[in-house]
Design a protein around this nucleic acid. Structure first.
Length: 601
RNA sequence: GCCCCCGUAGCUCAAUGGAUAGAGCGCCUGACUUCGAAUCAGUAGGUUGUGGGUUCGAGUCCCGCCGGGGGCGCCA
């Protein structure tokens, strides 16, 4: 927002240094001055110059020299429009903005752009973000929710930052686990089908858990139990073979139950505000994958050990000439010729590049699969895909329970819908207490927005790499650093603004601004740059932290600074516009996180 | 054995190589006849696991060690 001014200041500094017969650093970097209350940007350029001198003249004290230099440079600096003054402080060169101009420019720019405030210029790269890939025949749990919420936030941020963004989902709809579920369904529950999308999905997931228990060896099995289990195991493997052979009866059973899971997935995604552009199903990738394996064997990248009852493998470290084992050996096709996860991911990558023409491909998958994706990307590289360098595995931590990992197979999972419903229940109780006059209709809508917001925020306010230990009180916290706190700031801003018929036209901020106001304006001015940074670093956390900062500043402002009751009309108008700009920025920022900004709560 | 991630306040977590390492929760003390108290103001809390190195400057980068988690040929 202040690129032009800072560029001008940069060239002035270079001139001043030249005037002192000193070389300029290659790059002069500006950062916001950390002290609250006064606005501006500062640069540590003098440290670099002093350091260079110290290298030439040993014995030079760098810090003292940097302080001297900053003072000398500032004395020689010509005024730059937009800046009130330059100051040498602590060896930094600080440029302070013209208060009234700066405030008006920030607020006007925000209100003029409205929902587009912070949106970046269109970028040439096309991105695909792949996320929300639970297996079918399971039910959507809180760990899936973290993945989905994180991927969606990334997609929104990338899109807003200016990249054309395609949202992709890749449910795993086949594999021995899926077949095990179908086997048990057909054997013990044939023809049954509960009412309701969520109830049905959950019911199917329970069958999966029960079925897994039936085929898993137990301690202290009786011979009778062992025989039974082995029979069951043989049955499900036979079913997999029949599936692979394409038997219509098995396929129909599979497709029907799969649809139950996909129906549930779509409902959950809808609830989360996620609209996927491209669905890849794992089962559809197998055929292409197998042909790719043949290609890799033919080109000498892969080795076919099937003649010796082995699988098809790629010795990645060897191919790369690595001394230490790092990427190891990847199995890309089973010895019986059936496709693996790896087979399918190779096919999928190729589809992304060749059919959807993506320049950058982002895989949002938990970090347990880091090696898998490193192998995929390296094989793509060996294969000759230039886009391999632009594949990125966003490895995120997973959601565990205080007692340990969740496991669909073991059935000890926290389902997303249970948490969501509990969140809504709690929010409703609070509304009943704090805002009883809210209409029943609004109450329903708002409770969903707040409850889901709290849950979403709890997942996005932790850095990608960290695990989240799920507990109800933390996940559904409505106080402190939480979505409801931020949403409440939005509501409070709105409650002021709805009392005026029309927002005043652009006004001057030429009065003594309080620190509360300067802090707000400073934060608002930084939003567009932050969007770019979050997109570049794949870090929704930055937006989550920022939204809280902004809300906190607004709450402070709201408490201490009168808006409607301001002493003078011009101050009142300026503060109304500042309030509106804050509301807009809060809404935009929450929107990037996939969190709704209600007008009442 | 090898590879990846993490270690910051009692707890949960922040901090583009830059200025005095910050929030929230919890504890304690205050503020609603006031634009909505789901709020605000204040108190207390630190040898950033550890030892070196690079740098004008390191929580951040490099190496070693300690501790925790994950992964390593036909699960996904």
């Amino acid at each position: 927002m202040f690129d032009r001014e800072l560029e001008e200041a940069t060239s002035h500094i270079r001139q001043a240094l030249a005037g002192l017969s000193l070389p300029s650093p290659e790059e002069i970097v500006w950062a916001p001055i950390p002290f609250a209350g006064q606005w501006g940007y500062g640069t540590a350029a003098c440290f670099q110059v002093a350091a260079a001198q110290a290298r030439a003249n040993p014995g030079t004290q760098v810090k003292r020299r940097a302080v001297e230099l900053a003072e000398q440079v500032v004395r020689k600096l010509e005024p730059v429009s937009g800046f009130a003054r330059f100051a040498a402080e602590n060896a930094y060169i600080n440029a302070y903005f013209e208060t009234a101009d700066y405030a008006a420019r920030v607020v006007d720019a925000c209100l003029q752009s409205g929902p587009d405030f912070g949106r970046g210029e269109p970028q040439p790269d096309r991105l695909m973000v792949e996320y929300a890939q639970p297996n079918t025949h399971h039910s959507f749990h809180i760990g899936h929710a973290r993945n989905a919420v994180l991927g969606e936030a990334l997609a929104r941020i990338a899109e807003f930052a200016g990249y054309e963004t395609i949202r992709a989902s890749y449910p795993g709809d086949i594999g021995l686990g899926v077949i095990t579920c179908i086997w048990a369904y057909d054997k013990f529950h044939r023809g049954q089908e509960p009412e309701g999308v969520f109830a049905r999905g959950r019911w199917l997931a329970n069958i999966y858990t029960e079925a897994t228990a039936l085929v898993t060896p137990k301690d202290n099995e009786t011979p009778e139990e062992t025989r039974q289990r082995q029979t069951y195991d043989a049955e499900r493997r036979e079913l997999l073979r029949r599936w692979d052979a394409g038997e219509p009866e098995v396929r129909r059973l599979w497709e029907r139950t799969r649809q139950w899971s996909l129906d549930e997935l779509l409902e959950v995604l809808k609830l989360l505000g996620i609209s996927i552009d491209v669905f890849f199903l794992e089962s559809q990738a197998a055929e292409l994958g197998k042909s790719i394996v043949e290609e890799l064997v033919a080109s000498g990248i892969a080795e076919d050990e099937r003649a010796n009852n082995g699988p098809v493998i790629v010795k990645i470290d060897e191919k790369l000439g690595m001394k230490k084992e790092k990427y190891r050996t990847a199995v890309i096709l089973r010895s019986d010729g059936t496709a693996l996860y790896m087979t399918n991911d190779l096919a999928l990558a190729r589809l992304k590049f060749e059919k959807y023409h993506v320049d950058r491909s982002i895989y949002v998958v938990d970090f347990r699969q880091s090696l898998h994706f490193q192998q995929v990307f390296k094989i793509l590289e060996l294969w000759g895909f230039p886009q391999a360098a632009k594949c990125y595995h966003l490895a995120h931590g997973f959601v565990t329970l205080p007692a340990g990992a969740m496991s669909s197979r073991k059935g000890n999972v926290i389902y997303f819908m249970d948490v969501y419903e509990e969140a809504v229940r709690r929010v409703k109780a609070i509304i009943a207490e704090k805002n009883p006059e809210l209409s029943a209709e609004s109450r329903e809508e708002v409770a969903g927005q707040i409850g889901l917001g709290a849950l979403t925020y709890a997942m996005l306010s932790v850095d990608n790499t960290k695990d989240i230990v799920f507990d109800w009180e933390t996940a559904l916290s409505f106080d402190g650093q939480s979505a409801p706190y931020i949403q409440n700031a939005h509501v409070r801003a709105n409650s002021i603004l709805k009392k005026v018929a029309r927002l005043p036209e652009a006004v001057s901020f030429d009065y003594g601004l309080s620190e509360h106001e300067t802090t707000l304006i400073n934060l608002i001015s930084r939003f567009p740059m932050l969007v770019q940074q979050a997109a570049r670093e794949y870090k929704p956390l930055l937006m989550a932290g920022y939204a809280f900062e902004l809300a906190k500043s607004f709450h402070g402002f709201y408490h201490a600074v009168p808006v409607l009751q301001a002493d003078r009309d011009d101050i009142r108008e300026a503060r109304l516009r500042l309030t509106a700009a804050t509301r807009q920025t809060l809404a935009n920022c929450l929107g990037l996180l996939g969190i709704k900004a209600p007008n009442v709560m």
